[in-house]
Nucleic acid binder design. Structure first.
Length: 627
DNA sequence: CATGAAAGCGCC
DNA sequence: AAAGGGCGCTTTCATG
């Protein structure tokens, strides 16, 4: 290994010459913490044509490191790294420079095996092992955590090793990706690394006081609903039919198996009458689906499980709505309560989510720590996400994006004409289901139409319609038939597409994003095989549509970021929620900023819609809103 | 006590 | 016997 330690300006040697002569640069950083706001930057490692330069950041100092980063930027070398979003964040925090021309080996690996690599660990160690049969020492990397003092030669050596294989991994991966015809996807995803870096680093402000008001209200409601439920249960279950408390424990499963000790058993055997009731009251856990199911059964409600859809079938029992009410408020406390505020970073006062740009096999993002893509849609929660003083928040979402794309890829004339003429597609579908003119469709009929439209996108069967939408079994089959009669072109397209999925074992979105499916080859019986084929047909068609929208909004985000004429200080993406962007805009450029974002979103959508018009709805307020 | 699966539910 | 796609988080419960 051609190793150079740079711990003083005089030890920089031929670095500049080596940099200028190279094509690509492998890059990695070592820090003492993962938090970009409170870490100490220890090392910057660069690999160029086999030469590895390890910069001791603490000794060289940030100003000189900034110069090195600017050199990388100005020479516009392709930067190769593993999970570069992290490295770029450290670099941005310390130098305020944003590197853009990059190739991320972690993202590349995920793309190559998309759909197959659910449980495949895409660590650098795994890649180096798989591609070169070399073992990297994982343990030594942990020694940087909370590190202070003088770095050992061993640490410097292993830091260097982390950049040693990057460009060779990239060559192998790029070859595969080109064979897979995923060039466009590579270009898009790599260009997004700095975009998500910047969004995560910026964060979003959450008003604590407003947030906690929801919690306070929910807590009160929980007390009320819980009390109501307990009273109902105690009054309507005949506890005196049980011989003793043991019988109640066994029937209602109100004790974990290992909790029922011999001594406790002795006591419980002696409990009778009202004492049994009292014991049950103290022990019953409303949050336990297992216990709740038995209770409901005892109350004469024959539920097979206790999820919301099942419970809704038994709505006529007064207790059901109270249970659902209780559940809703519980969620507001557990997931969206006080603990959620721990996600506010103390150093910045902001929430910095993590976006996983290939988090979903469909090509959608996912978000975690916290997940900001499943925040309650209720205004009382959303309005807590607020703009900084002097700014406003533009919330902008695509209108019926998936149906538009389905119409475009299938070239279904009924879809195309409806969108061209401003006819609501849910109403249009209802007009087919109920054999009437769109002008005669009622509110509830439109709701059925909407169900059918979604059922088609998600590949629902007649039974699924019954189960999930409460549509009568007799009607479900009929509706599906009327749907395919009404939209013949779409139905034929879908069938042809789905047959190809099984043939090819992969699907491709509008920009060439691949999702692969495995052929399990061994099936218990023909029935299991058919079910598996049906499953990947659903997933594959969904990949085409959902993934296509994922591609669309990613393209929009890329262009908003790179073509932003106002500067990142004045117009900044805060959130993405699959078909929606939340953008903070400085008040003085509000109108121009809104037009810019809207046009970028529409331009991206137009790439794939053919003659169907692109559409997005804008909302401007002091906070995140869709009203 | 730690870990992982399953159930349930928040969002698009 | 199963039964619409894509996620992440919290709780319960079993297991080691």
């Amino acid at each position: 290994m051609d190793f150079h330690l740079v711990d003083s300006l005089s030890s920089i040697g031929n670095f500049v010459k080596v940099l200028q002569e190279c094509e690509v640069v492998g890059l990695d950083v070592e820090t003492d913490k993962l938090d970009p706001f409170t870490h100490t930057w220890l090392l910057l490692q660069l690999e160029m044509n086999g030469s590895i330069y390890v910069f001791d950041v603490r000794k060289i100092g940030i100003p000189n490191i900034t110069y090195i980063i600017q050199l990388l930027k100005d020479t516009n070398k392709l930067i190769i790294g593993h999970n570069l979003k992290f490295d770029f964040k450290i670099i941005y925090h310390n130098t305020k420079e944003i590197l853009t021309n990059c190739f991320d080996t972690m993202l590349a690996e995920t793309m190559i095996y998309n759909g197959l690599n659910k449980n495949y660990y895409c660590s650098l160690e795994t890649l180096v092992k798989n591609y070169f049969d070399v073992d990297l020492d994982k343990e030594i990397r942990k020694t940087f955590f909370n590190f202070t003092g003088e770095l050992t030669n061993q640490q410097l050596y292993y830091a260097a090793e982390d950049v040693q294989y990057l460009s060779r991994i990239k060559d192998i991966q790029l070859k595969k990706l080109i064979e897979q015809k995923q060039e466009k996807v590579v270009e898009l995803e790599m260009s997004l690394v700095p975009v998500f870096m910047h969004i995560e680093y910026t964060g979003i402000y959450l008003n604590k006081e407003d947030w906690l008001k929801n919690k306070d209200f929910a807590e009160k409601q929980i007390v009320i609903t819980k009390d109501k439920l307990m009273q109902y249960i105690l009054n309507n279950i005949k506890f005196d039919q049980y011989e003793n408390a043991i019988a109640v424990v066994e029937r209602f499963k109100i004790l974990q198996k290992n909790k029922l000790t011999k001594s406790l058993k002795l006591i419980l055997e002696t409990l009778r009458g009202e004492f049994i009731k009292g014991y049950f009251e103290g022990q019953f856990n409303l949050d336990s689906p297992i216990q709740l199911k038995v209770v409901l059964n005892e109350l004469g409600i024959p539920v097979e499980d206790t999820n919301e859809k099942t419970l809704l079938k038994y709505q006529k029992h007064e207790i059901i709505s109270t249970i659902l009410e209780y559940r809703g408020y519980t969620k507001q406390i557990t997931t969206y309560g006080e603990k959620f505020l721990d996600h506010i970073n103390p150093a910045t006062g902001m929430i910095h989510t993590q976006y996983n740009q290939l988090g979903a096999a469909s090509g959608r993002l996912s978000s975690d720590s916290p997940n900001l893509q499943n925040q309650p849609a209720k205004q009382s929660f959303r309005q807590c996400y607020q703009a900084r003083p002097g700014y406003k928040i533009l919330t902008i979402d695509y209108s019926q994006a998936e149906l538009r794309l389905a119409g475009a890829v299938s070239k279904e004339p009924e879809f195309i004409n409806s969108f061209l003429n401003g006819i609501d597609l849910h109403t249009k579908t209802a007009s087919f289901l109920f054999d009437k003119d769109v002008s005669q469709v009622s509110h509830s009929e439109r709701a059925r139409g909407k169900s059918l439209n979604f059922a088609t996108l998600y590949g629902s069967s007649a039974y699924g319609l019954t189960y999930n939408f409460g549509i009568p079994t007799d009607d479900a089959e009929k509706y599906l038939q009327k749907f395919s009669n009404g939209y013949k072109v779409l139905s034929n397209f879908k069938e042809g597409f789905e047959n190809k999925i099984w043939e090819n074992k992969f699907t491709t979105t509008v920009i060439g994003r691949k999702r692969y499916f495995e052929d399990k080859r061994v099936y218990k019986d023909a029935y299991e095989r058919d079910r598996y084929i049906a499953k990947i047909k659903r997933e594959g068609f969904n990949h085409l549509i959902q993934g296509g929208i994922g591609d669309t909004i990613k393209i929009a985000m890329k262009n908003i970021f790179y073509e932003n004429p106002f500067g990142h200080d004045n117009l900044i993406i805060l959130l993405q929620t699959h078909d929606e962007l939340c953008v903070e805009i400085q008040e003085d450029i509000l109108d121009a900023g809104k037009e810019f974002v809207l046009n970028k979103m529409l331009d991206a959508e137009r790439l794939f819609l053919g003659e169907i018009p692109a559409k997005a709805d804008c909302f401007i307020n002091l906070f995140w809103t869709k009203e």
